[in-house]
Design a protein around this nucleic acid. Structure first.
Lengths: 241, 241
DNA sequence: TCAAGTTGTCTATGTTAATAGACAACTTGA
DNA sequence: TCAAGTTGTCTATTAACATAGACAACTTGA
C-alpha cells in the first residue's frame, strides 16, 4: 500500500492517533473491545503489523490492554470534565464531541441557513435534522450543543436517532464506518436567553462558541455542530505547540 | 545522534515545523535570511542533510526560497490578521504571539501573583518585567496582551526592551537562542474597562482570553503572557484535527 | 582578485518504518 | 470437543530516514 505522500509522520503514529481520537471522543468506550487488528488494518489500509505497532504505543501509555485470543480493550476511563480542572483541548475541540453524550434535550427538523449549507455542502433551505444536547459534570451543565445533518442524505435520521441515541450508531446505520473532524472554529459570545436557562447561567455571561464539522474518509461533510461552553466553568488547554 | 525516543514523527518534519513556527511568529521575518544550514543543524542537533530535507519541504510549500551561495530566505508574507477572515489557529495560539508586534503601550515593573509565579516557576512577589502591547489590523485593534518575565533572570530587561523593541532580541541578549510554546489555555470573559478602551470595544462585550507560556530548550519557563481578543473581530481556526 | 561562507550534489552506511507470510498460543461460542 | 477468531512471535524484504564525508558551484565582502 502506497502512502499518499511523505508526510514525515509514521503510519503507525497516524493509526495510533486515530484510535486515540476514537477513545477520546467515545466511539470506543472504556472497557469496550476494539475492532480486531485485521479489521483496523483494513480500515486504515495498512498492514496488520503497523496496527500492532500503533496498539503497542497506546498500550504503553495505558490507553488499551491486549488480551491474547480475545481482543484489545479500552483502558482509559473518560475524565468527565472535572470542573475547573484542565480538560485536554483535543478531547473537546480537536476530536471530542462526536457523541452528544449527556442529556438529549430535543431532536427535530430544521432548514439550512447559508452557514450550515456551506459547511455541509448543501443548498440553502435544504432539510436538516437538528439535535440539541447538554453536557453535565456533577449535575452542573458545562456545554449545550446543536448538531445538524442532512435530512436527504440521512432520511428519517430523527426517528433513527430517537432509537439508537448515538451519533456514531446513527451514521453507521447509513453505512458510515469512520469519520473525523474537518474543521473547528473558536470564538466567544454573550449567552442568549435559551442557553442561559439550559446552562443555568445568568444573562450577560460569556460563552465559548465552538463550531465543528465532521467528514467521512472521502472528506464529504457529514455533520456540523455548534457548542456553547460556559466560559467560567471551562477552559481549553492546548498541548505544547 | 540518538533520537530521544521513537515518536513516529520524522526528524526532518520536526525541524520543518520548528522553522515554520519561527516564520509564523515573526522570529524569521519575510524576506529575511534564515540561519545557515550548518547553524540550523547545530541548533536542532541533526545532520545538515536532515535540515536540507526540512528546508526542501518548506520550499515546496513556498514558505522559503534557497539561493545558492547566499542563503535561504523567508518567502511568506504574514497575513496581518485580515478582519473576519480565518486566521490560522497555530499562528495565534499554537506558536504565534512571541513578538509583541503591533504597538507597544507600556513597559514597566510588576510583582508575581500566584498564577504568574506558578507559570514562571518563581515565588509569589518576585519582581517582574511587564510589557503591554496592542495588535492592529487596518487600524482596528484586535488584541491586547500583557507579557511578564522574571526581573531576576533578566535584569534591566525593561531598559533592554526599550532599546531593542523585540522579545526575541531581548531573550537573545540574555543568551536564549531558541524557545517554544509550552502551554496555551483559552477561555472567555467580559472585557474590562481598560481593555475596552484599548480595544475600542463597548463595555460588556466578550473577549477571548489566551494564556500562554514559553519555555527554553530545557523546558525552563521564560515568559508568560495573557492576550485578550475582541471576540467579534476574531475567531480561531483549528486545523483539521 | 581572493578567501570565506553559502547552497547543491554525489557516495556510502546503518537504522527505522512498512509490508508480507506463516504459524503458535489462546479465547470464545456452538 | 472443536472450529473460528483473536493476539503473539517469528523470518524476510523493500523503502524511507538519518548520519557522515567530500567536493562542486556560487555569492559576498574585504
Amino acid at each position: 500500500m502506497s502512502m499518499q505522500e511523505s508526510s514525515g509522520v509514521a503510519l503507525w503514529r497516524q493509526v495510533a492517533d486515530g484510535i486515540e481520537r476514537g477513545i477520546a471522543d467515545g466511539r470506543f468506550a472504556a472497557g469496550e473491545k476494539l475492532p480486531g487488528e485485521m479489521e483496523i488494518a483494513e480500515t486504515y489500509r495498512v498492514n496488520r503489523h503497523t496496527v500492532r505497532r500503533a496498539l503497542a504505543a497506546l498500550a504503553e501509555r495505558g490507553l488499551v490492554r491486549a488480551e491474547r485470543g480475545s481482543g484489545t480493550y479500552v483502558e482509559a476511563q473518560r475524565l468527565a470534565y472535572p470542573l475547573r480542572s484542565r480538560t485536554r483541548f483535543s478531547e473537546i475541540v480537536g476530536a471530542g464531541g462526536h457523541e452528544p453524550r449527556g442529556q438529549l434535550i430535543d431532536a427535530g427538523e430544521d432548514i439550512a441557513n447559508r452557514e450550515i449549507a456551506r459547511e455541509l455542502g448543501l443548498k440553502i433551505g435544504a432539510p436538516l435534522i437538528r439535535i440539541e444536547a447538554v453536557r453535565l459534570a456533577d449535575r452542573t451543565p458545562i456545554c449545550v450543543s446543536t448538531t445538524w445533518l442532512s435530512a436527504e442524505r440521512f432520511p428519517d435520521a430523527g426517528s433513527v436517532f430517537a432509537n439508537v441515541h448515538s451519533m456514531t450508531k446513527l451514521l453507521a446505520h447509513y453505512g458510515v464506518k469512520d469519520y473525523h473532524r474537518a474543521s473547528t472554529r473558536i470564538t466567544a459570545a454573550i449567552v442568549d436567553a435559551t442557553d442561559a436557562a439550559r446552562l443555568d447561567l445568568p444573562l450577560g455571561r460569556p460563552v465559548l462558541v465552538v463550531d465543528a464539522t465532521d467528514v467521512d474518509m472521502l472528506d464529504q461533510p457529514l455533520v456540523t455542530k455548534r457548542s456553547r461552553f460556559a466560559a467560567e466553568r471551562m477552559e481549553f488547554l492546548v498541548e505544547n505547540g
